[in-house]
Design a binder for these strands. Structure first.
Lengths: 107, 107
DNA sequence: TTACAATATAACAATATTGTTATAAATAAC
DNA sequence: GTTATTTATAACAATATTGTTATATTGTAA
């Protein structure tokens, strides 16, 4: 029915899936890569970097913001976005927590 | 329009987003966690672990399989699924490749 | 062969996602 | 004040996703 049965999962599972979901679109990967290349935060020259309309970009930024991966700050007429330093490593650690559980089995 | 403009992105971006998308559902996280807990591969006792119908589970397994995160093998009447070790490490490496690009900026 | 068990696929309904254009809201520039 | 600029939101159409039940498929067991 297009709707996930959220009540069946733990908070940790829902949170991890949420982070991955936020990362699960190439435009959002491209946005993050662009942010990571900058020394600092950026204003919205993103429309020149990513081939999407301004509203589409704005919503992708919104999803990354909702997931806590980036933070935005208003500076006068424009808006800057940065990687969220506090969250970034926390998310990395959580995601590695999943991957590190793997040990080559006896299959 | 519900359809991603794939032509605007690099292969690497599309591949990475595809992997994360496969991980972006709590049922699939739960499936992977269950696989990781086992010493070895599992048959489909998953319906007892995850509160979904058998066809729904089968399709989630299919998505993980399509993303290459797990591999399935037929053993007589039943089917075993395992983590795909090569892909598993590849995805983890890609993930850390993304996250490690972050350096605290001068913001 | 016939019946049973395990898994995948088909068909469908409900909701989510992704994109667009149009518009609102807020600040800047004149 | 008026006009431009920048970003977010509303409204919408097209497609994707997620779940279900029903059915097909494949192998086991009697």
């Amino acid at each position: 029915m297009g709707v996930t049965k959220t009540e069946a999962y733990t908070e940790a599972q829902l949170q991890m899936a949420g982070w991955y979901k936020a990362l699960g679109h190439p435009a959002r990967i491209a946005i993050l890569e662009h942010l990571l290349e900058q020394d600092c935060c950026i204003c919205q020259d993103l429309t020149e970097v990513i081939d999407l309309s301004q509203p589409s970009l704005s919503r992708h930024l919104g999803e990354l913001r909702d997931a806590g991966l980036i933070v935005g700050s208003t500076a006068g007429n424009s808006r800057s976005y940065c990687i969220n330093p506090a969250r970034w490593r926390e998310v990395q650690a959580a995601l590695n927590g999943l991957f590190n559980r793997f040990r080559d089995g006896t299959c």
